[in-house]
Computed example of a mutant assay.
Amino acid sequence: MLAYLSLGEVNENRWYFKYVKRCVTGKNPIRKYYYINLSCKTWKNVLLDTVIPKIVEKGFNGLFLDNVDVVDKYPKFKDDMTDLIKDIRARYPNLILIQNRGFSIINKTAKYVNGVVFECFTTYYNWSSGKYESWSGNDLNWVNEMAVKLLRLRSEYNLVIFTLDYADNESLKEKCIEHAKKFGFIPFVSTVNLTTLR
């Protein structure tokens, strides 16, 4: 059973926010979460020494590492994010680690994780229009290029690759599933608020 752990953002409602408040560097305008200055050693120390031990104590045997792709917004933190994932693996060698996206550093982090989630592989939720939409054109080409990259890494590091798409009707859900199966990935489809999962 995996526990959720955001590596690049933090919500002020998290019980450990008061310990890492000094590490925030901006705010996500959509999700109302704070971006983390990954060079702030307090962030790494709190995760490694306090947050993850509490997760393990509750019986979880793995972590879903989210918001790794914050390094796309803050490229200067790429090495810090890579080091954080490396240190989590070193400190907790028996935990299952599943990385969500973070493709700009996946070549360096693949050796430390057990699997990767490709969120928004086929579809995405357009927050401006309030609609579920499919990738097309250059965006879809980029997605498929990343998929081929993941296939190579899967072969090299024995990774499990999942997809997580968002859809609100059966036709769109089937499109997501078929696209994932084309690459041999394990598909999941949900609504944007993750109230259902297929």
Rank of each mutant, 00 (worst) to 15 (best):
Y4V: 10
L5C: 03
S6G: 05
S6A: 04
E9L: 08
N13S: 15
F17D: 01
F17V: 06
V20Q: 09
Y33F: 07
Y34L: 00
Y35Q: 06
N37E: 04
L38E: 01
T42Q: 14
W43E: 00
D49F: 11
T50R: 14
I52S: 07
K54N: 09
I55R: 12
V56H: 02
V56F: 01
G62D: 02
L63P: 05
F64L: 04
D66Q: 07
V70F: 04
D72G: 00
P75T: 11
D79Q: 10
T82F: 03
L84H: 09
L84A: 09
Y92K: 15
Y92F: 15
L95I: 05
L95F: 06
L97N: 05
Q99I: 01
N100Q: 04
R101G: 12
F103Q: 02
N107R: 15
K111F: 03
Y112W: 09
Y112C: 04
V117M: 04
E119S: 01
Y124V: 05
Y125M: 11
W127D: 07
W127Q: 09
S129F: 08
S136P: 02
S136Y: 12
G137R: 13
G137C: 12
N138C: 11
L140P: 03
N141Q: 14
W142P: 01
V148G: 00
V148K: 15
K149E: 04
K149Y: 12
L150A: 03
R152H: 13
L153F: 12
S155I: 09
N158W: 12
N158I: 10
L159I: 14
I161W: 05
L164V: 08
S171M: 11
S171L: 12
L172C: 02
L172G: 00
E174C: 10
K175C: 01
I177A: 02
K181H: 10
K182D: 02
G184E: 01
I186F: 15
V189E: 00
N193F: 09
L194S: 06
L194E: 03
T195D: 03
T196G: 04
R198W: 14
